[in-house]
Amino acid sequence: MEQEVPNTNTPVALVVGVTGMVGLSLAEALKSPTALGGPWKVYGSARRPKPTWFPSSTPDITYITFDALNFDDTLKHLAPIAHEITHVFWVAIQVRENEESNVAANSTMLENVIKALKSATPSRLCHITLQTGTKHYMGPIFDPVLGTQLVHHEPPFHEDMPRLPYPNFYYALEDLLASYSPSLSYSVHRSSIIVGASSRSFYNALLTLCVYATICRYQGLPFRYPGTKYAWENFCDMSDARVLAEQQIWAAVTDRAKNQAFNCTNGDVFTWKCFWKVCCEIFDVEFVPFDENEKFDWVGMMKKKGRVWDEIVEKYGLYKTNMEEIICPEALDAVLHFSFPHVCSMNKSREFGFFGYANTLKSIGMWVGRLRDMKIIP
């Protein structure tokens, strides 16, 4: 295939993980007429074919499917465009049975993509944005062994906190990017709990709650909060996918932000009590006051609701999903049992010149509306 000669004045983005919550927001933000550094040419990649809910409003995003764990497959699909790409937005993740396996899998994926893009002669690749998260400050909380032994940093979390003495694939990916300096610059974006719209994000707290609330309404069950009193009453923060996309694009084109790590949250805090009330209004279910004496196995209950979800999908003509693949009850349950305020400092980001923000509780209705428009929930 004859290669297209790139316009050397046009930035060309490759969004790796384009069907995830932040990947979708990045694709839309990069194609916005007001995008910093634009106009951008955008490629989006994922492991699986493009879902029907992927917005038709972005027809000028070229969609590529490949397995980043397989270098030959990665090179085959990226070689024809490698000479064009100037920026990689890395929002991909694969989750394995323990953190050592997470390190191996995610490092392999990122290295395969970088090698494939740098194989071009000449290569235009100049910057990579890397999305990680607050496990940077807490350690591998989902590791079946290490997760019970962790000593985390005290919140609010800030970027100059030292690394914890545990394996962490976030650390491995940062080190991998740093090893390519100075030929490549990079920026690291540490999110909190991400809220956005997708059926293909591994940790999707909002969609998990949407499915839970929908099943409760469908079966006439109480929409009960399954966490602790501490989490119910104390502060937590979130990261709107639009704010994450905005910060990543800003860092990609701002010299000051090169080779820096930034927290990225909405800039406000909330309590799960207030969040629960918003969900009750959105899904028209009764608000049940929290009673710490009423314990119930929420994770176990949700695992038994797969057939109920199948009925709901069929009844409302939704995009076909297996409930087990779109919810993360164990991960959300861990968040709802935190015994500390899950709060990040945004001071560094503001000091460097990024002022993006979102009103967390107001944004929930918008994102639920998008999930409904995409026919992922009724």
Rank of each mutant, 00 (worst) to 15 (best):
F270G: 09
V278F: 08
Q149F: 07
L75F: 04
S199C: 11
K50Y: 02
A82D: 12
K305P: 06
T58K: 12
Y218H: 15
P329E: 05
C328N: 10
H342G: 01
K76D: 04
M109S: 06
E97F: 03
F202W: 11
Y316K: 06
K277V: 10
L110E: 03
K258F: 14
L176N: 02
F235K: 15
T132Y: 05
L207A: 09
D284P: 08
V95E: 02
K115H: 07
P11W: 12
G365H: 11
K50N: 03
T254G: 05
W53F: 08
P39G: 08
L78W: 09
N263E: 13
K258N: 13
R242E: 11
G227S: 10
C328T: 13
I312Y: 10
E159S: 08
A213M: 15
I85E: 04
G133T: 06
V42D: 03
D333C: 04
I193L: 12
A46T: 01
E28N: 09
I327T: 15
H136M: 08
C279M: 15
D268R: 14
Y319S: 11
H136Y: 13
K135E: 01
E111Q: 06
V95M: 12
M109A: 08
V151P: 00
N347V: 13
M301K: 14
S199Q: 11
Y357D: 00
E325G: 09
I93R: 02
V12G: 05
K118H: 07
W309Y: 11
G133C: 03
E154S: 14
T265C: 10
S239F: 02
T214V: 14
T271A: 07
M1S: 04
P49I: 03
I64H: 01
A79Y: 00
N112K: 01
F142Y: 08
T148A: 15
P329D: 04
V285E: 08
S45L: 01
I114T: 03
I377R: 08
P49C: 04
K277G: 05
K118Q: 13
H136C: 05
K362V: 04
I114P: 00
R47H: 10
F283C: 14
M302E: 00
W298L: 08
L244P: 04
T148H: 15
V113K: 02
P155E: 03
A245T: 06
C279S: 06
A245P: 01
Y218D: 13
M109R: 07
L69D: 04
L150C: 11
K303S: 07
G369E: 06
V343T: 09
R190V: 09
N234F: 01
N168V: 00
